[in-house]
Amino acid sequence: MNRNMRRSYSSRTWLGLMYALTVLALIPLGLVLWFTIAKGLPSVIHPQFFFNVELPPCEPKCPAVSNAGVGHAIAGTAIMVGLASLMAIPVGVLSGIYLAEYSIARWASGVRLACDVLVGTPSIAIGLFVYAFLVVPFHHFSGFSGAVALAVLMLPIVARTTEGAVSLIPSGLRESGLALGLPRWRVSLQLILPAAAPGVITGALLAVARAGGETAPLLFTAFGAHILELDPNHAMQALPMTVFRYALLPYKSLQAQAWGAALVLIVMVLGVNLVSRWVLRRQIALAGSL
């Protein structure tokens, strides 16, 4: 009996330790959120932060309310991520349909492996690749090449989440479509895809959030700019690049802008993630009821 008591206590101690380690793992999340909010809020509360563009650093004496903002970076991120979505989402969704509908094909397992490897490919290498392909031949950095780099990053994420969402759809739906004489492509695109839409949208949103937060592939493609640039043929600024560049500068006013930009990024990314979790839960409930 004594021995069993000891075993039970030791088991409970280990269980407690495992939970303690899990909580420990979440401490950085709390700290990152807390410091980004605390240090970024003073910049973000001024509306001009979102509309104005970069001003030269004003050390040591700054006016009480800085007129500088990251409007150019927000516009750049929106344009580049938008263009990247236009390229990556259609291709990714079709790839996902292929992976789910023809999952037994030998080529499908190759595509799946390539997608997973591409997700794990260092993003800086993607930047180098796009630099050689789209910057060197045209002799200038451009928002368009940045968008292509982001699209390469998004593609495998969209493909794999679409595959997951499509596989969740019960085969009864597919079989009823085929039994009614619909051709396979109509079953896939007009029956299965709409049923899987919430999951597909979730995947696209997650890919957008990931692309919006990436810095490394933009360094040699979009390069960055100090002014508002709406033409994707020219170098463009992006929010993560603002954080990266300003944070390493010795000027307090620019560091404050970096924290503000980091807060905008965090709000965007966490917002997308929470919304997509909610959508995904509905998708799973929906698929269960089909």
Partner: peptide, 10 residues
């Protein structure tokens, strides 16, 4: 989900 650059500045 937190972007790498935010971890960096933190």
């Amino acid at each position: 989900a937190i972007p790498s650059v935010v971890y960096g500045i933190w």
